[in-house]
Each structure stands twice: as C-alpha cells, then as structure tokens.
Design a protein around this nucleic acid. Structure first.
Lengths: 130, 130
DNA sequence: CAGCATCCGTCCGGATACTG
DNA sequence: CAGTATCCGGACGGATGCTG
C-alpha cells in the first residue's frame, strides 16, 4: 500500500530524470561528502601544488586517497593536472575556473559551520545528557 | 622522514584543536555527506511533517535511515521533534531556527550544482573518453 | 617524485521482521 | 503510527609494498 505510493513517487521522479542515483545535485554534494576533496580544494586555493606538497600539507591523507580524490576532482573539471617531463617527473595540481567558482558556496558552508558551531555543540551535549 | 614532517604537522593541528576527527567544519559537512539529511531539510522547508509523511515524500529512504537521520539532525539542533500523545501516537518534525539558517548555504551549493552541472558533465565525459 | 596494486578491516545503509 | 532489532552485503578507506 504505502509501498505503492512510494513506487508511484519514484516513477514520477524517474520520469523527470531525478532518480537520486543520477541526481546532479547529489553528485556535487558527494564531493563535499568525500571527506578529503574539500580540504584539497581549500589547500589549492593558495595556488597550484605538487603532489607530495599536497600530501605534506594534508598530513592525514594517504597517498592512495590523495590520488583518488584528485582524480575525481580532475574528472569533474574542478582541478587540472599538469605534468612536467623532468627527471624525476613532477606534477602540479591547480584549480580550474570551475573549481575556483566552487569555493564561494563552500566558504559559505564553512562560515555557517564556524558561526553556528557553539549552538550545535550546545544542542548536542544537551541531547546526549538525556 | 616525510612521515616525521606529517607527524609534526599533525601535532600542530592537535595543539590548535583542529584534528580532523573533531573538526567543527568536518562535523557539519558530514551532515551534507549523510546522503539523506539534506533531502530531509529541504522537505521540511515547506513546513513541519509527520514521520510517515516524510517517508512518503522521500520514497527511497528506508524507515531505518529516516529515523537515524532525523535523530542526528535533532541531536545537532537543526530539527525539533514534537510528540502528540494521541492514539495512535503521532510525531511531527520541523526545522529549528538553526536548521532553517542552514538552508541558505545549502541552497547556495545546490544553485552552484544546478548552474555548473553542464560543465561538470562535459568535463566528465571528456575525461572518460581518454 | 608520483603514483598503482593488493589486502583487509570498518562502517554505511538496505531488507526484513517485530513492538507499543 | 512511529519506531526498534537484527542480519548482511558492499563500499569506503587505511596500510603496505612495488614501479617508472
């Protein structure tokens, strides 16, 4: 019964091309979700960085995750990857215009978090007491 | 060696109270990450909703996840939970002022995603071709 | 230096069944 | 109606070792 209602709603969404698994917004939010990508973007805000420099700036990101995160960002056109054929080889990562434009809404969220964190913490400890 | 550098940087962060695991901003971003919480907040933007009404509005959220998400939001003071001692019992969820204030930065991200999605998609398909 | 490959534990979240 | 309890697969991500 409720199952049918849900199914109908799902069908509506599919018809609109809005099923959550291919939702444009979700795919962007997943970058925010991705635990490291935002830190990377913020770090690149100061200018392009080499791979290991990024690793040193973000100490608790493993090389594996750093590579993976950078690939995802590169794939979505937020970050560009420039290879220098030197020896040993070096690679620089920098923000694209698209990536840079993402910093505005990101900073908006961060500011909100900064500003409201006392309230959140208060609510949290109160909730946990009961 | 690099390990030492990383450890030093980590220590600095700890001294500043900024270790990623208790970072205020991270904890807020984790709400965005949480896959359902944002949809819930957006749904509540239209006004308070009862539990099952929310479930019907968000068809692909299981009851389990809906409960869990609402608890997290309630814990952080973004959502309030009002119980009516009727029979059968009913519960309404609504945005707090804090929760409502979060919608601004959230909408900023959504707008960005909406606006830039064509570019992202283009970058993505180009990346995948090579 | 800048990765990739592999193994492996953890946790997120779905499905299902049951309760006051 | 509004949840809780349990089971479970699969994805996320850390540690380690190897490569051009």
């Amino acid at each position: 019964m409720m199952r049918d209602i849900q199914q109908n709603r799902l069908d509506e969404w599919k018809a609109m091309g809005f099923h959550p698994n291919n939702c444009p917004v979700r795919q962007v939010l997943d970058h925010v979700a991705a635990k490291w990508t935002t830190l990377i973007l913020l770090e690149l805000e100061g200018g392009p960085q080499r791979f290991n420099a990024l690793g040193r700036a973000l100490p608790d990101v493993s090389k594996r995750m750093l590579t993976q995160s950078l690939r995802n960002l590169e794939r979505d056109g937020l970050v560009n990857r420039e290879v220098f054929g030197t020896k040993p080889p070096s690679v620089a990562y920098g923000l694209t215009d698209l990536g840079a434009s993402f910093l505005a809404p990101l900073h908006a969220m961060i500011s909100w978090a900064d500003e409201k964190f006392p309230s959140i913490n208060a609510a949290r400890t109160k909730f946990d007491m009961e």
